[in-house]
């Protein structure tokens, strides 16, 4: 059965510069999967646990955050804060009986880097393997 997941990516301004430069079409040519929707933020440190949970409420099968390298964040500790919040969401998913791998943190180099696309592809594969998220209640 074919399944196109809904994956919400939250990326900081610096790791997602590629998105402005290339636009959706350019990114697609680079290999960005259709399943991934990019949400740009000024800094991932601004992300709240509730925003990540909201993405699941809105029907996401997977959610990931792309921020600066842990010790080189443009805003000092922004991406480290984001990583902690991703951990909190993993814990919450576990409590809800859902695979914690549905949410992930990526620390990526700023600027143009193939890792940006690789992270999206990795999540796309991971979520396709896991199948639809049970939080959507569709198997009931």
């Amino acid at each position: 059965m074919s399944f196109t997941p809904d994956i919400q990516a939250f990326c900081c301004h610096y790791t997602s510069q590629q998105t402005i430069a290339e636009g959706r079409e350019g990114l697609k040519n680079d290999g960005l999967p259709d399943s991934v929707n990019l949400n740009r933020l000024v800094c991932t440190g601004k992300l709240q646990v509730s925003s990540l949970l909201k993405a699941f409420e809105n029907g996401a099968d997977g959610v990931y955050v792309a921020g600066c390298p842990a010790d080189e964040c443009h805003n000092m500790k922004g991406s480290r804060r984001a990583a902690k919040r991703v951990l909190a969401v993993k814990k919450a998913l576990k409590e809800l009986g859902v695979e914690p791998e549905r949410v992930e943190m990526y620390h990526l180099q700023r600027g143009f880097h193939p890792e940006f696309i690789e992270a999206a592809q990795e999540m796309d594969k991971r979520i396709k393997d896991l199948g639809p998220c049970s939080l959507k209640g569709e198997d009931k």
Binding site: Q48, S50, K54, E57, L96, G97, K140
Partner: peptide
């Protein structure tokens, strides 16, 4: 902030049960 999180968790948990 925690109210927002808990409200979300309750909605998600109930939805998982189809409610």
């Amino acid at each position: 902030r925690e109210v927002e999180i808990l409200a979300s968790l309750i909605r998600l948990g109930m939805k998982k049960q189809g409610r």
